[in-house]
Computed example of a mutant assay.
Amino acid sequence: MANIRDVARHAGVSVSSVSNVLNGRSDQMRLATLERIRQAMQELNYHPNRVAQQLKTGQAKMIGLLVPSIVNPSFAVLTREVDRAAKARQYRVLLGNTYRQEDEEQAFLEDMFAHGVQGVIVAASAMERPHFANAARLGLVMVNYDSRMPSDALLGNQPFDSVSMDNVAAGRMAAEHLIERGCRQLAFVTEAFLTISRAHKIEGFFSAVRDHGLTDNARVIEGKALAAYGDTEMTELGRTLAAKVLQQAPRPDGIVAINDALGIGLMAGLRDAGVRIPQDISVIGIDNIPLADLVHPALTSVMPPLTEMVAVMVERLLARIENPSITPGEFLFPPRLITRHSVIDSTEP
């Protein structure tokens, strides 16, 4: 197997010249010399040892992404968008499934350090946990996605950026849409273990029903997943919760699902019980995953501007890696309603 000295000998240049090419320092090099080195690398089938380069520089052209579970469609879409944004900047993504478990999160942070990763996007995790603050003190740049920190977190000295959809506005928007379409018995259906973002969506839901004088007509219906938080089983949980919805008296005519995956499962369970959607019960989700437009009826959903949010996350991550003195900030994005066919149209006869 060829090494850097073989390439230098084959091209008739010094080892330092080959090293300059490998490390992107060829701007002052004659084009003929650069071409000879590239040709020698190709003819010798030489591939630089990226691990050795990383050890030498202490850096890696990688960013980290920690998600609760790639099985959850919302986090699968997030992963795709982060990967696209990173590749556009010649970075790769090191992915970790944490299942929101502290030991998994800590182990992955240690892995990131070991691989020379300097920046990590952490999705939907409790960022007040001490291992995140410890990692930040050791120099790891982090962006917190979809889990806004409390205002008094870390004594007002938040060490990472926060990027989130306005989940209070999302819950409010979903409830407002159902009310505008004539629904009066409202329910918010969710997994029982509340995260910050889930709690904010419920807060927005109740703010809308209060404004319309429907507080006595609104309730939360929840179910416990087999695994904590339910990230890997939202569709199945939604299907199971259909029976609980139908046991309510009076029965809801409008439902906000905590996310699209649960909403799709819920619609399946309601259809199995002979309920017509949206004629009998309207359903709206939150997230706007690609599958929402493919089920029948297509699911109305509240959408985060994910592409724009990911662009901000990656840009902030790389900017703060380059300049650690940049003060972390909070970036809150407004949601948008995507209307389809799972909510009744009260204007139709």
Rank of each mutant, 00 (worst) to 15 (best):
E191M: 13
P290F: 04
G64S: 00
A192K: 09
G119N: 09
R181D: 01
L95N: 06
K224P: 04
A319W: 09
A136N: 03
T327Q: 01
Y229W: 07
E222S: 13
V51M: 13
E322D: 13
A170S: 05
Q247G: 14
S14I: 07
G204S: 07
I255H: 05
S301Q: 10
N259A: 01
A225N: 06
N97A: 13
H47P: 02
H177N: 02
L318S: 11
P48E: 11
A273F: 14
E233H: 06
A32N: 12
V21M: 08
A169M: 06
Y46K: 01
R184S: 07
F206H: 12
A227D: 15
R336Q: 14
I258Y: 09
A192S: 10
V117R: 01
H341G: 14
T327V: 09
N97T: 00
R5L: 10
N323G: 04
S342G: 09
R181C: 10
G12F: 01
T98E: 03
L186F: 11
H131K: 09
A86I: 05
L31A: 15
G238D: 06
V163Y: 11
D253W: 07
L214W: 11
V245Y: 12
I221P: 00
E203C: 01
I289M: 14
G274T: 00
M267R: 09
L94Q: 09
I258C: 11
E322V: 03
A11M: 00
T240V: 13
V314R: 10
F206E: 11
E81L: 11
G139C: 02
E236M: 02
N323K: 14
L34Y: 04
G329M: 13
P297I: 12
N157R: 15
S125W: 00
R210C: 13
L194C: 07
L78N: 02
P48N: 01
H212Y: 02
D293C: 14
V141D: 11
P73Y: 04
E322N: 12
A133C: 05
I277P: 10
N3D: 05
R100M: 07
E81G: 08
V122G: 02
T235E: 15
A133P: 01
N323S: 12
A8R: 02
A208G: 02
A52L: 00
Q279T: 15
E110D: 13
E315W: 08
R340P: 10
R30C: 10
A227S: 14
S74L: 12
V120C: 07
M165Q: 13
V120Y: 04
V310K: 11
G139V: 06
L78T: 04
E348W: 05
G24Q: 02
E222D: 10
S74A: 13
S164L: 05
L95S: 02
R38P: 09
A218S: 04
S147N: 15
E315R: 04
L138N: 06
A174K: 10
F160D: 01
R340E: 03
E105Y: 07
A169E: 00
